[in-house]
Amino acid sequence: MRALHAALAFLIGDPQADRMVPPAGFTVTLTVFTSAAMAFLAVFALALSLASGRLAERWGDDLAKSATIRISAPADQIEDQTRAALRVLETTPGVAEARALSDEDQRVLLEPWFGPDLPVDQLPIPRLIEVIAEGDGYDATGLRLRLQAEVPGAVLDDHAAWRRPLVEAAGRLRALGWLAILLIGGATGAMITLAANAALAANAQVIAVMRLVGARDNYIAGAFVRRFTLRAAAGALGGTVLGVLTLVILPRGGGDDETGVLTGLGLSGLQWGWTLVIPPLAAAVAFLATRAAARRSLQRLS
């Protein structure tokens, strides 16, 4: 409650104190532009991070729920082994569904490589069983051991080998997004510090007069801090709106999340709410950067 009161008092400000610092100066444009540009970039970094997070989750969840059993056996044994494998799967906890792919299904799968006329029934192609897991999934190690004992030609492929690097890559992309947001915050702070230092140096005479009439350091610093904070917030608001509009008009990949980050860069549902955090965050960075710069300058000018 006290913090809210302090925040409100800061926003309302002291109009007379605000008037003491001359309104003109290049630092106005610099602060507003920097905040707008950084907020715009922050929207994209946020979208990248959240989109890659969604992707990682999707790959992690969906692929973990599916597996393939490949049965390689002499032609006269392949049907028996397929039935044996299906029996094993029926009694395996965590398996929701298991289906042996028909010749037609396998022909369709191979069609992109071998064309539509592939004589599947005449080739020694392994039989595939599609396995769909439920709940927390099945025990892959246990299933492998049972298949090894009961179906010698069966090999379980739970997609872990190629799923892991994809999920890791998406996770790294997400971390990169957050790192970008941190760097953007740091760069915003550095630029606003430079602008605040320039404004303080340009207003050394104003500071001298305020000191002469008995103004305390907090009062003098406050006049600058509030100005820079509000400018940064305004710039960041503009940059965020622009960033959100750009995200909205970006081309979509037909709602297919697996198309990846390139066409899936965007926000969904409540994730849009995260963009509301950017302007107050930029204002907080500006507040801290200007306050530190003002304190240093006032110490130096004393």
Binding site: R211, L212, V213, G214, A215, R216, D217, N218, S302
Partner: peptide
């Protein structure tokens, strides 16, 4: 303190 001096300057 600096604040004390500022107030006293009044």
């Amino acid at each position: 303190s600096r604040d004390d001096i500022a107030i006293l300057r009044r």
